[in-house]
Write a protein that binds this DNA or RNA. Structure first.
Lengths: 226, 226
DNA sequence: TTAATATTTGAAAATCCTGTGAAGATTATG
DNA sequence: CATAATCTTCACAGGATTTTCAAATATTAA
């Protein structure tokens, strides 16, 4: 399964270099140039790991981490420019997984990221599949309970699976074919228009939360909390 | 074995921070923001330990503890904001395992929780007399006795094992295959519809308590007290 | 603005899933 | 060894869900 990495770095040349390296390793890359953008992207996409520079505009790296930590325990790696920052980092008591000091080799960063993800992957499988709060709705994958505005919504198996897939891929456009492959399975032959029909009932059942399901004309659908 | 912790705290930022810390330590986290929700979640999930704030909406922490104590002797740790609360706590004579006074460091809370659980598990091994009260029914895993409305129910080995597995996983959906793996063993080959047959007899024998066994169409079954 | 293309939607048809009773197979018990 | 208890399979009815279809509506591009 492809991992999504968030790179937060204001120096555009470095940002691009890192993007190239991570893409080469099969990562899906999301970029941000300042603290605000970083937090936006964090809300918008399902990020698996973040590499965050400390000295960035608007909101500095420390604050970005604090903010993310209120909602997620995703792995975070910091990038520091100065050794003074390095000390501060330790002093702050932030819950981060690793850091690198500039200048560093992209290869090393990639290696560190991979090793962190490896460590995480076992724990993650168990932990990450719990209770998710997304705007108006609350989903529990284990009990297969969906709540909108606090009250239970009754979904059939396929309806629930589709919504779950949406949520696990929030912010990303999902093509009809992808749904067929992921929910129905590669070998099942059904018209891809059936996805529309399920979108219809999902929207109806989700009520006010149906606004999160967006049509991307000519491509597919997208789940976006905002 | 992964432990499930219930965090009862109305201050959402603190709630989220604690969630992150406990998840990182491999806990499965269930959250509640007020006393009512706390009691609901307590019924809904198999909780191993609870951290409860005293000043919470609807039903305060003291009352939550009293209510839980009528059904369970699970470890409980309280979080107090004021030293006056601290005194009250002592005065009340509630059967709690520990407490922390705000502001406290999440790390300390985690450490306390771990040490309580360690103490508890040792006790558990010796005591081994766990009576579980779930709505209408009472189950004792050691003596393999089930009571519904106070009277004994006679279950065969497989029937009991299935019910026990249900109860140990209350609130989460269990697939037929999972039952086969857990009760029959991976290597045994039987039709998975046999699960239905056992559900049938379980429901019949449990009488009024059969309402806790819920069918999740297309997926499996769920044990839910409510 | 219009033609071409996509999506939404309601309803009907086809399919799948579960509950159940009955009956055969296996295992325990005296 | 015989009998009882338990486990397992099977098949059918009824209900729930999935799938298709076609008309209505919306979007895009020229």
């Amino acid at each position: 399964m492809e991992k999504t990495i968030l790179i937060v770095e204001d120096e555009l040349s470095l940002q691009n270099i890192l993007e190239v390296y991570f893409k080469k390793e099969g990562f899906s890359v999301v970029k941000a140039s300042d603290g605000l953008e970083a937090l936006e992207k964090f809300e918008l996409y399902s990020i698996d790991i973040a590499c965050i520079d400390i000295m960035i505009p608007h909101i500095d790296g420390y604050e970005v981490v604090k903010s993310i930590r209120q909602k997620s325990d995703m792995p975070i790696l910091m990038m520091t420019a100065l050794s003074s920052e390095e000390n501060q980092l330790k002093g702050y008591g932030l819950d981060i997984d690793d850091y690198v000091t500039k200048p560093f080799s992209p290869t090393i960063l990639v290696a560190k990221v991979k090793s962190i993800l490896k460590r995480y992957s076992e724990k993650q499988v168990r932990n990450d599949i719990q209770n998710h709060q997304l705007g108006l709705m609350e989903i529990n994958f284990q009990s297969r309970i969906i709540k909108v505005d606090g009250s239970d919504i009754d979904l059939s198996k396929t309806e629930f699976d589709m919504l779950a897939y949406f949520i696990k891929n929030k912010g990303i456009v999902i093509e009809r074919v992808t749904f067929l492959d992921e929910i129905w399975g590669m070998d099942v032959y059904v018209e891809d228009r059936i996805v529309d029909t399920f979108i219809k009932t999902l929207r109806k059942k989700l009520g006010p939360a149906s606004k999160y399901i967006k049509t991307v004309f000519g491509v597919g659908y997208k789940f976006e909390v905002n």
